[in-house]
């Protein structure tokens, strides 16, 4: 049977067409249109959009809020990614081994993943509330520390959001590690035990290297999430105080849908797309080649 026939060509394309059309309309077109619109001004009142060349980009470079938000996002990424991955690995190793109450532990770690971020953000908002919140009850009433407005202070607000994100994500990443751990043949561990290798040595020299593809996968997901997830900001801080907790996507949302400056929002989106694109290139070009042993 000759599959490369004209009929196979037509069938292949017809099968692909519906999905391809929707992807083109809602992924490829908007990505290109973002670039295009970033060279125009925002239409205002009866005035149509005008070609302004690089003016939007010039404005962005001179916009202190943009730099602040970008800096916040980098801190946010640096705070969430390593800790959530390390915790995920730790959790996975724990619930994969023989530990008392394994079922409960797995449930406890994973539950935040299935809840809406918007809902858990409400819960955490209450948790951080000055005076009434559980955190204040603990720090003020029990430890006798002075009262502190955790979400209302510029120096602590981002850290508070980082904690929420780690809490939400670690259990999700744990699942991928758990799947990878279960794929490692037990004979490796037995062989290592016979050779007298300690658990830490075995983890460092055998388990961890074998988990590298999973770590890469989780890492890429964590990077994407740190630029994609802003639900909790809408609920908890609205980017405040003084943009101290605003992230890039949240700023795009503010500019695009509160100030209705769509041209500048497109310009900011280009930065976001550049970051995500670079992540993809790094993944496929550089890391993937170094990590795959198969």
């Amino acid at each position: 049977m000759n599959r490369a026939s004209a009929q196979a060509q037509i069938h292949g394309w017809l099968l692909l067409l519906p999905a391809a059309a929707l992807l083109a309309l809602f992924t490829h077109y908007p990505a290109l249109a973002t670039l295009w619109h970033s060279f125009y001004s925002s239409p205002k009142g009866g005035r149509p959009a005008l070609w302004v060349g690089l003016d939007n980009y010039r404005g962005m470079v001179e916009d202190p809020v943009f730099w602040q938000v970008l800096g916040n996002n980098l801190w946010f990424a640096a705070g969430t990614i390593p800790v959530s991955i390390a915790l995920a690995l730790l959790m996975a190793v724990w619930v994969n081994g023989k530990i008392a109450g394994r079922g409960f532990l797995r449930l406890a770690y994973f539950t935040p993943t299935v809840l809406p971020m918007i809902a858990v953000a409400n819960i955490w908002l209450f948790f951080y509330t000055p005076t009434y919140g559980l955190l204040e009850q603990f720090t003020v009433d029990l430890l006798g520390l002075p009262s502190h407005n955790w979400l209302g202070t510029k120096s602590t607000v981002l850290a508070c959001l980082i904690v929420v994100t780690i809490w939400k994500e670690a259990g999700f990443f744990m699942i991928f590690y758990l799947a990878a751990l279960q794929a490692i043949p037990p004979s490796l561990g037995e062989a290592a035990a016979i050779e007298g290798a300690g658990r830490w040595y075995y983890f460092r020299r055998v388990t961890f290297p074998l988990l590298m593809p999973t770590t890469l996968f989780v890492l890429v997901n964590a990077v994407i999430n740190s630029f994609r997830l802003v639900d909790h900001i809408v609920v908890m801080t609205r980017g405040g105080p003084d943009n101290a907790s605003s992230l890039l996507l949240y700023y795009i949302y503010d500019v695009g849908f509160k100030f209705w400056d769509s041209a500048y929002a497109s310009t900011l989106t280009m930065v976001l797309l550049a970051i995500l694109g670079t992540t993809a290139l790094l993944q496929f070009g550089f890391l993937e080649r170094r990590i795959h042993y198969r």
């Binding site: 249109a33 795009i252 849908f257």
Partner: peptide, 8 residues
């Protein structure tokens, strides 16, 4: 993802 292409 569509999540970041909100403006367009």
């Amino acid at each position: 993802m569509p999540d970041v292409l909100i403006v367009e």
